[in-house]
Write a protein that binds this DNA or RNA. Sequence first.
DNA 1: GACGGAATTT
DNA 2: AAATTCCGTC
Length: 718
Amino acid sequence: MKTPGDTGFAFPEWAYKPESSPGSRQIQLWHFILELLRKEEYHDVIAWQGDYGEFVIKDPDEVARLWGARKCKPQMNYDKLSRALRYYYNKRILHKTKGKRFTYKFNFNKLVLVNYPFFDVGSTGSSVPQSAPPVPTGAGTHFRFPPSTPSEVLSPNEDLRSPGGMFSTVARRMARGSVSDCSDGTSVNSEIEEGNGGAGEERGERSVSGGGGGPGGGGNYRSIIHPRLSHEALFRMYGGPGNPAGHPGPRGPAGHRIHQEPLSPFPVSPLPGPPGASLLAPPLSPALSMTPTSHLPYTPSPTLSPMLGSHFSFNPEDMKRYLQAHTQSVYNYGLSPRAFLQYPNIVIPQPHRPAADKPGMASERAERGGGGERAGERHHHPSLAHSAHHHPQLPHSAHSHPHSHPMHHPLHLGEEPPHMSPFKFKLQPPPLGRKQRDGQSQGKPRQSSLSSGSGSGSMSSTSGLGSSLSFGSDLSSASGSGVISASSSTQSLNSAGLPKIKVEPISDIESEEEVEVTDISDEDPDERDNEFELFSARHSRISNHHNHHLSNGTAAAHHPSQDEDLDEDVFKAPAPPPPGLMPFFTSQHAHRGLTTLKSEPVEPGESHAAQSQTPSTGAAQGKCIPLKLRFKRRWSEDQRMEASQEESDDKKVRPEEGRNKGRQTNGCVEMEEDGEDGDSPPPLAYEGSLSAPLASHRRVSAELHRATAQLSLENKDC
DNA sequence: GACGGAATTT
DNA sequence: AAATTCCGTC
């Protein structure tokens, strides 16, 4: 069943399938890229370089070859591969670093979400540092995920759903690992993973991950981390690389054996390493202390790695924290507490700063985590000489203290000062479609053979152009799904013969949203984003809904219909929440009851606080502030941050994101042949968790384990 | 080289 | 849905 209600999905489908996707159950390119990036052997071919999340393809042909091998597409070349990469621009998974050849940059927000849906990635890409501060390790109730069955898991859904569903889903998926299609897989995988060694590597990472890893932890960190932190720094922070024992790192040619990837933004594998460490233990990175959340410009969180091998781990505690964090976020955003009614168990934490965490923890964790991975080393080295390009930055030793580099200043030279990008639209007549062109010229299909004409299909792809609503991140996409953009309609009209107008936000990725604070009432649907427009419309409508729901009282946990509604409501109800929040809100599984919400003021002390308490908003705090307003406000902040970071490479976001309807993965699970996954499922993160592991947790973990194992087996069969 | 539309394939 | 192919334009 795909009913959304059944499962709970919080993000767009595509986000869940790092490794497999309906359309292509094979490994996805971005995933593959990450895979290469994490392996030292390929550093001569592709490596992290420059900015955070930025990587350069040093040997395009080789990368293409590898990709082709993986996909069994011998004809693959950089031109094609790059086309595929360009498709990621719209998805916001990647963007091009302009001016640098073969250089692209990951949008970690997106990636993180993929692997760690629960994470508060900060909304929209831009994190909201303040709004989603790490939650204090929780104390409180233990959150439980609703049970989800496999079927559920797979169900696709574009809307936001409860985390629980997702969680499990993700976990399973992760467990599966990625695939190699080439049937036997032999060849393909071989390219990348040679021998088991590969496995070792990956595994190592996982274990290592403990250091940083936990999703939870990562998430939290995310907000804290300075955008500019160097990869290295991150490592340290998370303890990943630093951890001597722990890190598996294949020794690189250079001899620095750091972690898998020196520059990798994903310092630690997402895998839950030592559980505790990662998840709950928060951040501790010196960075933290050094940089208060408030000013950290936002950066995609590198903490979590979407890497392939990674297994998703979840921990109830995390969940709890997650929820709490969101709760807090909500407040920060000025969202109505009503939103929380659904989550009675959640206590809204007092705002508190990450800084509070103890510094030093990271290092501790690292040590713990480290253990044993290391199994196999890869002997394989790229033929290429180790080039100088490598960035020496790896931290060889684990320093617990922040590295200077990363912390730098927010305004780095290279960085542009944060600029607000006004939301702009580019109105332009769409170029004639090929068909049209052809038609004009001839009518003949471009490639000889297929002639027949129905060309109906083509349009669809294009339609996306317009304005899709996307709030920076996944959520956005999710939200977008429901939205019908004017542009699309326009396009359709176009097919009818009407003029086609392409409306697209010029702004960058995360910035699609308008940042200005405006009164909702005044909005002009016309200009601006269609998105907003839609949003508001939706919004208003929703609110009613929402209330309705509330009145109903507690809805059963799983009624599809209800869920749907609920989802919708939730989805819409709160102000357009930052993406990160969405999942939370939507979760239908959450228990409903009255929650004890403590209305906490927004983080006191924080600059942000000011934000929420701004005069205009302040009044509203308790009340309903025009959602839009709040949202925007928040957004603007985020945007600003993000803006500084992201260039405005990304351009438009298309509806495509939003509309993914997911499909479920089918039976065959694919496994990465890397060895890593092949064997046994990695330990769950929370196993060793920080806080006392509860029986329940264990139970959960056990289940996951089991599931994972099973999946692994299945995969093998496949 | 980079971009992105269109048609196709998986 | 995500690529893969081609290809025209910058």
